[in-house]
Amino acid sequence: MNMMSHGFKSSKQDFTFGPWKVTTATTHIMKSKDIEHLAEEMHMPALPEMLFGDNVLRILHSDSFGIEFNAIDALKRVNNMEDSVKVACAQEWQESRADSEHSKEVVKRYDWTYTTDYRGTLIGDALQIKVTPTTERIDLEKLKAREQIMFFEEVLLFEDELHDHGVSMISVKIRVMPTSFFILMRFFLRVDGVLIRINDTRIYHEASKNYMLREFSTRESKISTLQHVPPSLYTDPNEIAQYLPLKLTQCEKLEFPEKVAEMEGGDDVQ
């Protein structure tokens, strides 16, 4: 059956495995009046052209704790007081937008690249995941093993073409295997002629363990130092990532809360 590919098809999926329930929702972009309202609330002169405010990827434990990924929380981690791509870039940006009389003021006022170091939103009222730094790393070799993929979904949170000067986007995908799940959220920024930046958040959980591992990394390069790389790769995050120097890695253990019942002395109860 040939589905029409244009337009946004709303879809909501739930997938349950063990004590976990994965929910993904993908729907249309936010209406412009809602975007304007949100921009005001967030003290930002503008928000991404394509903002999927109702899109979400959520992983919820039967004890009502978990983690989710959504666009609004991702935007809250954008530094709205300063421009993170410093002067050289701002200069080029202003020249390229000479037609817009307020561009100078805007460049000063916010990070127009929407760079975010968002790593997900912890959820849970009574019980919450505890985050601690760790030296333990995600075993990427294990992830390469050809395990059956029981569920896969990708959710776009926002995208902006930076007035035809590149792209800024963030999306999150999950794959669930019989004994584990893996999440990759990727922020990808390309400012044409200036720089490429990738912020990745990887989350891995093995069913036998009472925690997830979360690794956050930033890779970045000026375009001028990527002369040896074919420009056709600049638009493909998967291809260009390996050419971008690693600037930062942070590894965390996301430990699951103990059940309240266990505090009542029932430690050995199976």
Rank of each mutant, 00 (worst) to 15 (best):
M169R: 11
P48M: 01
N80D: 15
V107W: 11
V260F: 02
Q270F: 12
R109T: 13
E153S: 07
E255D: 03
L254D: 00
W112Y: 14
A46R: 12
S10E: 09
T113L: 13
T26E: 01
T16L: 08
E239K: 09
T135M: 15
F17K: 12
I149L: 03
E159R: 10
F69H: 03
P257I: 00
L189S: 09
W20H: 07
K76S: 11
G265D: 00
E255F: 13
I138N: 00
A241W: 05
H165R: 13
V172E: 13
K108D: 09
F187E: 09
Y211T: 03
D164W: 13
D267Q: 09
L246E: 14
M169K: 15
T249F: 04
S84E: 10
R109A: 08
E258F: 10
R146C: 05
P133I: 01
H228S: 08
Q94K: 14
E206W: 08
E36H: 09
L254W: 11
L57D: 01
V176N: 02
K247Y: 10
A207L: 04
I149K: 01
N199P: 00
K104H: 11
F151L: 00
V194L: 15
A90F: 10
E147S: 06
E161G: 14
G120P: 03
R175V: 01
C89V: 13
D63H: 12
L157F: 12
D192R: 07
G265C: 05
E41N: 14
L195S: 10
E101Y: 10
I129D: 01
F15V: 07
I170P: 06
F158W: 06
M4L: 10
V56R: 15
D236A: 15
R214W: 01
E40S: 08
I129S: 04
H28A: 15
Q13G: 04
N199H: 10
Q91C: 05
D192K: 03
Q270A: 12
R77C: 03
G66D: 12
L213N: 02
S5L: 07
L127Q: 09
G265R: 02
R137N: 13
E147N: 13
N238Y: 08
T201R: 00
F152V: 06
H37A: 15
T24E: 05
R197W: 15
K76M: 01
S62D: 15
I29T: 02
T134C: 06
R77W: 00
W20F: 09
F65G: 07
G166A: 11
R190N: 08
S84I: 14
H28D: 15
P178R: 12
V131M: 04
V22R: 00
G7S: 01
D63W: 05
R77L: 11
N80V: 10
V167E: 04
S5A: 04
A90Q: 15
